[in-house]
Computed example of a mutant assay.
Amino acid sequence: MPMTVVITGASAGIGRATARLYARRGANVVLIARGRAALRTAAREVESLGGHPLVLGADTADAEQVEAAAEAAEKHFGPLDVWINSAFASVFAPFDEITAEEYRRVTEVTYLGFVNGTRAALRRMLPRDHGTVVQAGSALGERAIPLQSAYCGAKHAINGFTSSLRTELLHRGSNVHVTVAQMPAVNTPQFSWVRSRLPHHPSPVPPIHQPEVAARGVVHAGDHPRGKQFYVGASTLATVWGNRLAPALLDRYLARTGFDSQQSADRPSAGPDNLFHPVDEPAGTDHGAHGVFDDCAHARSWEAALARHPAAVCAAAAGLAVAAAAAFRGAGEGAFSRVRPGSRRSWRR
């Protein structure tokens, strides 16, 4: 029987790429977002790849809409196996140029949207003692950067909320799991539809990864939910450890470089933003998974691949250790053979 997966923010970016991966498994894929035109295109993709789509329009900032979507998903497919929260919104601007209304909206979508999705999922998973919730996190939830204070604050909040919830589930001895896939900079359409007050086109901070890299991390987290969190990309891991080891130094570095590195003067101007309304309606534009940075985005991540296959890494490391020991032993035996028995030099080899 196919598994049932719910994905918020499924119309574009990481959510869209994740839907494709589950579709290739033949899963029931519930697609949730505000933009129904893009969702319909995503549904056709899921179906063409072997999955079974269900389109549900909902604003994740609205708890009642999310609850209604969860109810419709179970009515259509039955029990939910995995719920993935990946919808978000952001504003690129210095803090004092972001209005209170904009700040509230980013927080309601990017943080409370995850809370709403998690609540709706657990309401169905806990009675059955089965299911997994995956939060699409960010390195910026560990190390904030300038010009994205609302988004960074929301991602920090997700980490705290999820950690608290995890301890409650452990206390219950529950077989329901919640985990976070922490993302690097990803080439998604968000940089073309985010609300921005920057003089140039918003840009992810290099190194940039393609959404398929992020999607593989999300699916891996769904398959192996017992881990507290998963770091996707070496840059995410470097950011986390850099912040833990030298936060003051990183503050000064980001103050010096963080403004220019998030702008791209050679890109076309961003279009309408999606902070309060989806950008695919009424025009019907579908943005897909990729953004405008294909020419400089990485389609692979060695660190993410290693994290998905720890057993293979351990086996390879053990094999290398055995080979090194054998080589060392052979070299030593050869050295011993060149020294006459009883020689005073032989012990030094």
Results as ranks from 00 to 15, higher is better:
207 P>E: 08
165 L>G: 05
124 R>C: 07
128 R>M: 12
157 A>Q: 06
122 L>K: 04
132 T>C: 11
156 H>P: 11
140 L>T: 14
197 R>I: 01
166 R>F: 11
179 T>C: 09
160 G>W: 12
167 T>R: 15
173 G>M: 11
203 S>R: 15
206 P>R: 12
179 T>M: 06
185 A>Q: 07
175 N>E: 14
146 P>G: 09
200 H>T: 01
158 I>P: 01
190 Q>A: 14
136 A>Y: 00
153 G>N: 07
198 L>W: 01
190 Q>K: 00
170 L>E: 15
190 Q>C: 02
179 T>S: 05
207 P>Y: 09
174 S>W: 08
163 S>L: 11
147 L>K: 09
184 P>A: 15
156 H>A: 10
146 P>A: 11
153 G>R: 04
157 A>Y: 12
141 G>T: 07
130 H>N: 10
128 R>T: 04
206 P>T: 13
140 L>Y: 12
136 A>E: 03
190 Q>D: 04
188 T>G: 03
122 L>A: 10
191 F>G: 01
151 Y>H: 12
134 V>D: 02
146 P>H: 12
121 A>N: 03
177 H>L: 03
184 P>N: 09
179 T>R: 05
176 V>N: 08
169 L>A: 10
142 E>Y: 15
193 W>S: 13
195 R>A: 13
166 R>M: 05
179 T>H: 05
160 G>H: 11
191 F>K: 00
126 L>W: 02
178 V>R: 01
207 P>K: 09
188 T>H: 06
163 S>Q: 14
161 F>D: 00
123 R>K: 15
180 V>D: 01
152 C>E: 05
179 T>P: 00
136 A>G: 06
147 L>Q: 10
174 S>P: 15
136 A>F: 00
172 R>N: 00
154 A>L: 04
152 C>F: 06
121 A>M: 08
154 A>W: 08
176 V>S: 09
196 S>N: 05
204 P>R: 02
205 V>Y: 10
135 Q>T: 08
198 L>G: 10
184 P>I: 09
166 R>S: 04
